[in-house]
Nucleic acid binder design. Structure first.
Lengths: 224, 224
DNA sequence: TTTAAAATGATAGTATTACTATTACAAAAC
DNA sequence: GTTTTGTAATAGTAATACTATCATTTTAAA
């Protein structure tokens, strides 16, 4: 059973809603492929236009610049992840189980329950790992934050923080632990692949040891 | 008592050693100021040349491109931080004390024992927080890693990992915890300032609560 | 002290990037 | 059947990211 999904995005993220037209959806689809393949630095609207079979000018009608597009797709990812989290923790009673779901979601170990035909979530996950932080590591953070561009990330973080508090209501760092968990999951996956000496996971494809590390980190931290 | 310091950098980081000439040191000095002020994205060699009072072409004689320059200054930072760590943990016996030093170093709470007249370490620290990750979050990681550009970061990480093992020789994730500690320290400082809802620290300038969080995270994790 | 080598400055130039503007035509909505 | 909307095509600009050349200054070795 899979659910059709359409995520309503903050209009400040785009000039014209890419989800409202075929060209728009194509832009999203091919930008995910292209950024994944050549990296955000080398990614340009010109190259994207070629892939999409359209023109640079048309893409500029949808997004102010490539940085906004990056913010759009990463923000989409956070929203989708929160949906997944809600779905998969729906009938769980014990916060420990919920936390296990959170960790499995962050390491992409959970069956995706939503269909979005034009978005390859596996590629998108790769982008979030490699390029995601660049969405907020800019001189525009404050302004972008005021436009609520990062709200989905904060919402996800807050939801995870609430689960932490279920397990330990006295815990004083629920949000910091949540953002640390999210960032660490991605960063350690990146290190594992590219700079393995910064981890203890070896170079095998298995995410098992990473899951173990994250569980250890979170559950130890939440102990009384 | 302060010590004169000259850090020998990996020659793969530069075309001409910036530490060997006045112009080179000026390039470093002003690039730190400029990147701090306008951010790495907007930073160009043209603008830097104006600040330095030299020409674009001259700067290209020292660094292949601006990304290499960023890697140079962040790598310099990691080396300096390891020196500081060695110095400040020199006479300490208990690993707990050493870990406290590590955390204080990462949050810039420790008296700097080294003089480097042309490098403003406080500005540099700000750059490492905001832009540091961009040095390795590129499509060139693997190649750059083969050229040993990230060795100082790995060395620092390994040294911290060894301190963790002093406290708990059974601990299986010393490197992952070390890299997580470093990354988390910086990321939480960034969040505290720009996206405070992702933390539990409030917006005061005090780093005290962050230090508390990092101590909690590490010491809990290292418990048996 | 002379001389050669190295470093710098000045100038110029190229390809690419990151846009903006204008026009025009086709499709769809009212 | 007209207006709105989406798209294409073309053109153009300012800035970026370099590279090349050559004259001049500085430095270091003989």
């Amino acid at each position: 059973m899979e659910l059709q999904l359409q995520i309503k995005m903050n209009p400040n993220l785009y000039l014209r809603d890419p989800d409202s037209t075929g060209l728009g959806r194509n832009i999203i689809k091919h930008s995910i492929k292209l950024i994944h393949d050549i990296g955000f630095e080398d990614f340009t609207f010109k190259k994207l236009a070629v892939e999409v079979g359209s023109t640079e000018a048309s893409i500029y009608r949808y997004f102010e610049n490539k940085h906004r597009l990056l913010t759009y797709i990463t923000t989409w990812f956070w929203t989708w992840l929160e949906y997944q989290l809600i779905f998969h923790t729906n009938n769980l009673r014990h916060p420990k189980e919920k936390i296990d779901i959170v960790i499995k979601l962050l390491t992409f170990e959970v069956q995706d329950k939503f269909i979005v035909e034009h978005i390859d979530k596996s590629l998108l996950h790769g982008i979030v790992i490699c390029e995601g932080d660049k969405a907020y590591l800019t001189k525009n953070v404050t302004e972008d934050n005021k436009s609520m561009l990062f709200k989905p990330y904060k919402d996800l973080c807050h939801r995870i923080a609430e689960i932490f508090l279920e397990l330990n209501p006295e815990f004083v760092f629920p949000h910091s632990l949540a953002s640390t968990l999210i960032e660490t999951a991605h960063r350690q996956m990146y290190f594992k692949e590219h700079l393995p000496r910064l981890t203890d996971f070896g170079k095998s494809k298995a995410v098992r040891p990473l899951v173990g590390f994250l569980q250890h980190l979170v559950f130890k931290s939440l102990e009384n």
